[in-house]
């Protein structure tokens, strides 16, 4: 199983623990990832606000490079990248005016894109390509008794979700259950975390993260599992500000890949868990099964 890998800027910066856990977990499952050669920023929501055509060009360059370097599916862990790359793919297919502008830009750099690159999220690949049974075999330290709130956020499931339901996604729920965790009913699983508003308009942005945290605590979760670097950052790094405004809501938010790594027997350090502001509550570590 081989995929092109588009890390995106966050996984090299604030979200580096995502990459640090994703790579060993994928390797452990025999999934080969090849980082996309000279990839560039996808443009995210910010670029789209400035110039739609250029935002499309940013994304299309990556799609074109992926197509030319073997045409493997493009594994895209960051939600914003996943959305923007998929959106560009759709726009190129649906709207002739956008298609023309993008093709013209690609030509200027001797690139071409026929539309074949598939943009896929690691959850999709893990559950549908690798398979839960294979994952189950690798579990040596089941997450017994760990109550996890599965949090998907916005941009993977909306609006271009192909592998899961937009309103009630379940792939991560099933994955976490396979790891032995207890999945908490978490109706806010697709609500917005506030995105970049936590930084630009804390009053609004932080309150959205706060509601997510508070409700996870109210539902008895020990930890929140997330699939997006921005969500993880918002729900982890702003704890002191959230506490100051609305009272303490201490609950750790970790990447689902970190939980997979733990179940596979990796150490916290190997998975970048030391990078959390709010650490996961220590729990009795069961001995590795023989």
């Amino acid at each position: 199983m081989k995929y092109s890998y588009f890390p995106g800027c966050s996984l090299k910066g604030l979200g580096r623990a995502y990459e640090e856990s994703l790579l060993p977990v994928m390797k452990h499952l025999g999934v080969e990832l090849q980082e996309l050669e000279d990839w560039n920023c996808c443009g995210a929501t910010a670029y789209m606000s400035v110039d739609e055509a250029k935002a499309g060009v940013l994304a299309a360059r990556n799609l074109a490079i992926a197509e030319q370097n073997g045409g493997h599916d493009l594994l895209t862990p960051c939600s914003a990248c996943y959305l923007v790359l998929n959106k560009t793919k759709h726009n190129i297919a649906d709207f002739p005016d956008i298609r023309d502008r993008i093709h013209c830009a690609l030509r200027s750099a001797n690139l071409t894109y026929t539309g074949s690159t598939r943009v896929r999220h690691p959850l999709d690949i893990l559950v549908h390509d690798v398979g839960l049974d294979v994952i189950k075999e690798k579990v040596v330290r089941p997450l017994k008794g760990l109550k996890v709130a599965p949090y998907y956020g916005c941009q993977v499931v909306r609006p271009y979700s192909t592998f899961d339901d937009a309103w009630n996604p379940t792939t991560m729920d099933r994955l976490l259950a396979t790891l032995g965790a207890e999945v908490v009913h978490y109706p806010l699983k697709t609500k917005c975390c506030g995105g970049s508003l936590t930084g630009t308009l804390p009053e609004a942005g932080l309150r959205m993260s706060y509601i997510l945290l508070k409700e996870a605590v109210r539902r008895g979760a020990d930890v929140i599992a997330t699939i997006c670097p921005l969500c993880q950052f918002n729900m982890d790094a702003y704890h002191d500000q959230i506490d100051r405004r609305w009272g303490p809501t201490r609950i750790a938010t970790v990447y689902f890949t970190q939980l997979m790594g733990l179940a596979f027997g990796f150490s916290e350090k190997e998975l970048g868990l030391q990078r959390n502001f709010i650490p996961m509550k220590p729990r009795p570590v069961p001995p590795v099964a023989a």
Partner: peptide, 23 residues
């Protein structure tokens, strides 16, 4: 208003470097 400023700073950084360094 910080949000449009962020959008513009963001695109400027992409134009110059091709990638974003969030900090």
């Amino acid at each position: 208003f910080p949000i449009p400023i962020l959008a513009k700073e963001f695109s400027e950084m992409v134009r110059r470097k091709g990638r974003i360094t969030e900090t």
